[in-house]
Design a protein around this nucleic acid. Sequence first.
DNA 1: AATGAAGATTGACATATATCAATTTTTACA
DNA 2: TGTAAAAATTGATATATGTCAATCTTCATT
Lengths: 233, 233
Amino acid sequence: MSEYFDKSTKRCADCQSMSQLFCLLNQDELAMVDANKIFVRFNAGETIKKQGTFMSHVLSVNSGLAKLYIEGIEGRSAILRIVKPTSFIGGPGIYSDQRHHFSITALVDSSVCFIDLQVFKKILSGNQLFAEEFLKDFSQDVLSVYNRLIYLTQKQMPGRMADALLYLHDAIFRKLKFPMILSRFELAELSAMSRESAVKVLRDFQKEGLLRISDHEMEILDLEALHKISRVG
Amino acid sequence: MSEYFDKSTKRCADCQSMSQLFCLLNQDELAMVDANKIFVRFNAGETIKKQGTFMSHVLSVNSGLAKLYIEGIEGRSAILRIVKPTSFIGGPGIYSDQRHHFSITALVDSSVCFIDLQVFKKILSGNQLFAEEFLKDFSQDVLSVYNRLIYLTQKQMPGRMADALLYLHDAIFRKLKFPMILSRFELAELSAMSRESAVKVLRDFQKEGLLRISDHEMEILDLEALHKISRVG
DNA sequence: AATGAAGATTGACATATATCAATTTTTACA
DNA sequence: TGTAAAAATTGATATATGTCAATCTTCATT
């Protein structure tokens, strides 16, 4: 409880888990962020941001892991990416309709800073380098969506699932053995298939000795083979 | 020939087909664009920009129509959108790796202004309002990719084809009867299916009296029904 | 008009994928 | 610890979609 209080009020200047982007701010700018931010903890499963709501703040993920997903047709969702600590989350709403165009849900206990959007925009317009970095960040996100568009529409299930697992390995955990933060259903949402199909593809992968799932952990046994499946489609 | 020469050297200040965005520039800025632009005509079928190449310029489409597409796996492409006159084309490469992340091919005879990227960036950083509008434009493009990601992965063929046709109607021609600028194969690339499937879906649409294709023209006969198919998926 | 190339069409077929229903396993919590 | 709810699994089946091969049409060019 005291820990909760401590962290929620600590100053940005002392923060170790601030997203890279904000390192480009000077003291005054950081003080402005400081004065206009809100620190919040979320339990696993809680909704951090809901698609369609007004974008009053931008986000910086301090700790934990979350899924960022688009809510599509008839309750079906497409997970765009997994959000890990120290990453900044803005989105196309900042400069269009000031709404959130995706939802974010905590996968494990997480903490997030909400930074007032108007303050953020003001700083953006006054700090050239910061603005450039912000755009770089945004552009990278866009490129990854391009990439997903292609692989989700041009590969079949095994290739898509391989890509999803390789993504977890390459971009999130960087280890062959990592905790299963996603349910089968969520893995299905990440690779655009039905829950049952996800189960079957994973079973096949395990049968072929590509990976092992046990005790809430996944271990990739044959990275090279996964890469090959990803390539073949 | 004289016409060609005329148009290629005319000044931006006099240009009627400059993209909206540039209306926000002052005289000096426009003069800078003027001095650092290249005007080029393309014949139908010619490649305007090739994915992967160095982004030395940003584009403004003066006349004609073009397809903007991502070249994906094994020669397969996904058409992102149709580009019509007076639209600006930048893309995520501007602020990431300075490469083009899509290709653009003229569908009909077209003309394009190429504006030096460094000059463009310099103007961006000096003109707040211009920068905001640029970001709005970019954000809209991103939102449309979100949208496509959802509908390409969550709808089946008839729904996807209906969306493609409605897109041509709503966003490009704004008429029920319009020229068939896309081949069946390109319609397939726009709606993520095989050439043959596109043919069959279109045949079904025609059988049901939703549309008519003849003499290089498509006429939508039952807009409401198309909307319904789009909704049902 | 004749020719050939590209595009469009078709039906048969194979395959990928979703759906359904039943069952088992895991998890949460009273 | 027991119990209910949620998640995962499975096999059977239906459906959507791609692939193939053959044919037909259109169009540009000689």
